[in-house]
Amino acid sequence: MVEDRRLGDAIAYVILTIGVLIVAFPVWLTFVASTWDAATIINGKLPLYPGPYFFENYNRILFIGTSSTTREPVLGMMLNSFIMAMAIALGKIFISVLSAYAVVYYRFPFRMAAFWIIFVTLMLPVEVRIFPTFKVVSDLGMLDTYQGLAVPLIASATGTLLFRQFFMTIPDELLEASKIDGASAFKFFKDTVVPLSITTIAALFVIQFIYGWNQYLWPLLVTTKDSMQTIVIAIKKMIVTSDALTEWQLAMATAMLAMLPPVLVVILMQRLFVKGLVETEK
């Protein structure tokens, strides 16, 4: 029996390790490429270990920029991306928690109609309504602004649906107990509903932060100034058609940097997830 279990475990680990290697190898390659100079990469003999140009490459890309295509330093773009992703994630959470609270806990005329209208927007992602949205944003003078980047992406139904489902699992008696305890509708929201939703909020935050961070099409449309570029667009711009003109080591360094914040968000939020899962109970 014991032997069997060991063998089973060993097989599981082997499979896991292979899986991890497959996923991790391109990332490693990217990292390695970001630590060599252009010549090493261009001649096609990239070693599998890091080179001596780590500080030089990262210093240049973060604070100076590439020589031709993107011009601006990546640090500013990371800031742009970060502001956009945070605005989208927080904005979405704020709007969807409130709208779900209204839909679940208030009886107002056309409540279900309101819910269905929100629901229907699921079928209209940004890509589908991109021209009208662009027109509105441009007419409002929001091109090349953070509002222009974030606001159109904040409106979406997924968060509302998620919170609605969650709120409906909160027992009615909690609301009733709150009422008897003298809590107003807002106090019930603040003292009971939000703390109970922390796990859901954390999950949505992670998903939406990454969604916002990875936006490509929309930022491409609404930004024209170099200073408003996001890092995802920068990567694309750095890779020009002619291989010789692409500063691969800098593009790779940018890719590594672009990966960093989403990874950090996942790692940090994961702890909150676990904490939320362990401590709350409906």
């Binding site: 305890d181 003298g182 401590e279 709350t280």
Partner: peptide, 29 residues
């Protein structure tokens, strides 16, 4: 309203606030 009727209610499923300590559950009202 229920809060101003000067009543207290004990529910079948207790309806305690899951995220509050026992102390806070009692103190909240």
């Amino acid at each position: 309203g229920p809060a101003d009727r000067d009543i207290a209610m004990v529910f079948q499923n207790y309806a305690l606030y899951p995220h509050f300590s026992v102390y806070d559950n009692m103190a909240y009202g």
